[in-house]
């Protein structure tokens, strides 16, 4: 029981990833594929963010008076959430949006040429 409860969040992320993944590979509509891709990526980001989570910790901003120097040793690590995954995810979000943008540009072009965004119809026109 502990196995499920303590890692329940991971289960949900993974299910979410798989929803996105399924849309990416099984949906025939190109826009749907991109929506799936967004869900997939967001779920990964959620996964990363929860890697950094610590029970009872606060947001990763140093609590101190303005410009007061605090010696490194006196900062309690467990008090702050791990900032590294957050940094990585800022990059990942931007990457995700960029890919979405390019993919949507492609979809627009595809629609201009084939007048549809359904994969099977396009393949029929291509063959």
């Amino acid at each position: 029981m502990d196995f499920i409860v303590s890692k329940f969040n991971y289960w949900i992320y993974i299910i979410m990833m798989m929803i996105g993944f399924y849309a990416m590979i099984a949906k025939r509509n190109l826009v749907k594929k991109i929506i799936g891709m967004n869900i997939f990526q967001t779920a990964i980001i959620l996964f990363y963010v929860s890697i950094g989570a610590k029970k009872g910790a606060t947001i990763p901003i140093l609590e101190a008076a303005h410009h007061a120097k605090i010696p490194p040793e006196s900062i309690e690590v467990a008090k702050y959430i791990n900032p590294l995954p957050h940094v990585l995810m800022l990059t990942a979000i931007v990457v995700g949006v960029s890919v979405t943008g390019v993919a949507l540009a492609l979809i627009i072009l595809i629609y201009r040429r084939y007048h549809t965004v359904e994969e099977d119809e396009i393949l029929r026109q291509l063959s």
Partner: peptide, 19 residues
């Protein structure tokens, strides 16, 4: 476990950043 403070992720590299 979710939210554990002693995971490798929280003790290896990131403490340096925090401190």
């Amino acid at each position: 476990r979710w939210g554990d403070t002693n995971t490798p992720a929280s003790v290896h590299v990131s403490p340096y950043y925090i401190q």
